[in-house]
């Protein structure tokens, strides 16, 4: 099956899923309750969101592993956009989204705000990678995404410096 056909199928599936999701929303609670980054349900779903929903999760060992993979995918994405390789860019965007879907809940626990930004950036990449209108904007988005992934990875790996305590002040004769 060609990439175009696969994408078409993905869009059709996404629309179907979106219809199902809207039917379930009132009875099964909001996205916030499920622990997933909240996207306002009152707004109509974007094309990027539909495409995102249609992508199957690509499992990783844990959040750190998934974020490491995403680090590679986002570099591949940026390179593909700069080389006008739309097909490779779409593949990288789908790999990013699939990997993210599998770790999103865990990542949101590490940093809900960043996780929400990642999700939003992924919508944009998915939406715009098929028909690139503004390469510069996509490179900027991929840079933003790259930084978010790096920051989340640091948190997942616990490599951020820890808080230290400070002793009480002592009176000094020389420096009152």
């Amino acid at each position: 099956m060609s990439r175009k056909h696969r994408l078409l199928c993905a869009v059709v599936l996404a629309i179907a899923f979106a219809g199902l999701a809207s039917g379930c929303a009132s009875s099964s609670g909001s996205a916030k309750e499920s622990g997933v980054s909240a996207i306002p349900t009152s707004e109509p779903a974007s094309k990027g969101e539909d495409l995102y929903e249609a992508i199957a999760p690509q499992p990783s060992t844990d959040a750190a592993d998934g974020l490491t993979k995403m680090n590679g995918f986002v570099k591949a994405y940026k390179q593909a956009i700069e080389e006008d390789d739309t097909s490779a860019a779409q593949q990288a965007a789908q790999d990013l989204a699939g990997t993210w879907k599998a770790i999103e809940e865990e990542a949101a626990k590490l940093d809900g705000q960043r996780a929400e930004t990642v999700r939003g950036d992924l919508f944009l990449l998915l939406e715009q990678s098929g028909e690139v209108k503004n390469k510069d904007q996509l490179v900027d988005i991929s840079y933003s995404l790259y930084q978010m992934i790096r920051d989340l990875k640091e948190k997942a790996e616990g490599s951020l410096p820890h808080e230290e305590t400070v002793p009480e002040a002592e009176d000094s004769e020389i420096y009152p």
Partner: peptide
């Protein structure tokens, strides 16, 4: 370190 990370990104290095 973050700036160097960015340079790996911009120069397409693994």
């Amino acid at each position: 370190q973050k700036m160097l990370d960015d340079l790996y990104f911009y120069f397409n290095l693994e």
